[in-house]
Write a protein that binds this DNA or RNA. Structure first.
Lengths: 64, 64
DNA sequence: TCATTATGTAATTTATATATTACATAACAT
DNA sequence: ATGTTATGTAATATATAAATTACATAATGA
């Protein structure tokens, strides 16, 4: 479940906590998603993408 | 949670049951996702997209 | 008319995403 | 050194995705 959340977040100089608050989840949830260990819901993926000014494909589609 | 799963499935002349089997879920789950009432997991969205030869954005991103 | 296929839906159960609380550490500034 | 910020992680609780089972109906063809 690799993804580009962490790099996109850091590119915007946001902390996990700031992203979490904007998205409406806890810091821990963001941490686990970045780590690639979670299988987040579509709604959460979309919320994250919008906050980071990315699309689903940018963040989650066939990330190397 | 509107999406383009149904139209993409029908374009490939697949039934809900055929898609469900390829994706590894039940027919009911596909039905509910198409109806837009579920908040599927990212993994499931990706499996569906691959079977339907689409990307996440094609199926789920800002569907009108 | 009857059987089959595709789909809708509802009730209950099971698996797991996410919250909550808590404690740890590294980095950095003061 | 000390305090603060950002992050990692673990244990338990809660919400909900998804499975399972079952019954319903419309469409179609034999």
């Amino acid at each position: 479940m690799k993804n580009n959340v962490r790099i996109s977040r850091i590119n915007l100089s946001m902390t996990q906590e700031q992203l979490a608050k904007k998205v409406g989840v806890t810091r821990q949830t963001i941490g686990l998603i970045e780590k690639g260990e979670y299988n987040p819901s579509l709604q959460l993926c979309m919320s994250i993408a919008k906050v980071l000014n990315k699309t689903l494909d940018d963040l989650f589609w066939e990330v190397k």
